[in-house]
């Protein structure tokens, strides 16, 4: 019943699956004219999403301990290790100790109960280790996201497909924007996130600190 590391194994597809999918999103153009400056601005918005607690709290490192951003207690708003001594293990799904899915069931139904563990249409899990975002600078995260070796083998189109596929299965990205039960959503919407991704891709995936290129990198023109 478990789909291990679904996100990690999803590969970019040549055929645009989303065209037939039920993701409800408007697919932006990847070949629009986007200046590097506008691309970097799009990246900034992407970075804001990635490092929002709804996203980064499961993009942790080798320690494999997910994070909580508290809404109550001694210091509301502080980031702390997930309660209950939770450890994701090398499996990143807690299989060595207690499965994420023991509490975070797999379901596409809305999250409505305050304090209850959130769920999504994918099996709950930590992001793969190579997707670690905690403790990284924006430039480091950016370099990860545009590197197929460290982003699940995705090119620009693959990144777009990653989002639309997530929308089809009510996955983690979708959940991040609609976490329900009083949780603060990631900034923007899934559509704006998709648009920003597309703009960033169209601009040639510029990262902070990149030497300003004379022309767009090749990834975007595939």
């Amino acid at each position: 019943m478990r789909i291990l590391l679904a996100a990690a194994t999803a590969m970019a597809c040549a055929a645009p699956l989303w065209a037939e999918g039920d993701h409800g999103l408007t697919i932006p153009s990847l070949t629009a004219e986007v200046t590097p400056e506008a691309g970097l601005e799009a990246w900034d918005r992407l970075h804001e999403v990635f490092t929002h607690p709804r996203c980064i709290n499961c993009h942790v490192g080798e320690e494999a301990v997910p994070l909580w951003t508290t809404t109550h207690g001694a210091n509301p708003g502080e980031t702390r290790p997930h309660g209950m001594n939770i450890h994701g293990g090398d499996s990143r799904v807690g299989a060595e100790y207690i499965d994420c899915g023991t509490c975070h069931v797999t379901s596409t139904r809305p999250n409505t109960t305050p304090g209850a563990p959130p769920h999504a249409g994918l099996d709950w899990q930590l992001a793969p280790l190579e997707f670690q975002w905690t403790g990284k600078t924006p430039a480091e995260i950016c370099a990860q996201v545009r590197d197929p070796e460290r982003n699940g083998g995705r090119d620009g189109a693959g990144l777009i497909e990653h989002i639309t596929h997530d929308a089809e299965v009510a996955g983690f990205i979708t959940w991040g924007f609609t976490p329900g039960a009083g949780r603060e959503p990631a900034p923007g919407s899934l559509q704006s996130h998709l648009d920003d991704t597309a703009a960033w891709v169209a601009a040639g995936m510029p990262c902070p600190g990149d030497p300003l290129p004379a022309s767009a990198p090749t990834e975007a023109s595939e």
Binding site: H72, G83, N85, P114
Partner: peptide, 15 residues
């Protein structure tokens, strides 16, 4: 009362 469930008044856990 501001606390509504055990996540806000946890007590001790095994670890």
């Amino acid at each position: 009362a501001e606390q509504s469930n055990y996540h806000m008044a946890e007590g001790m856990r095994l670890y």
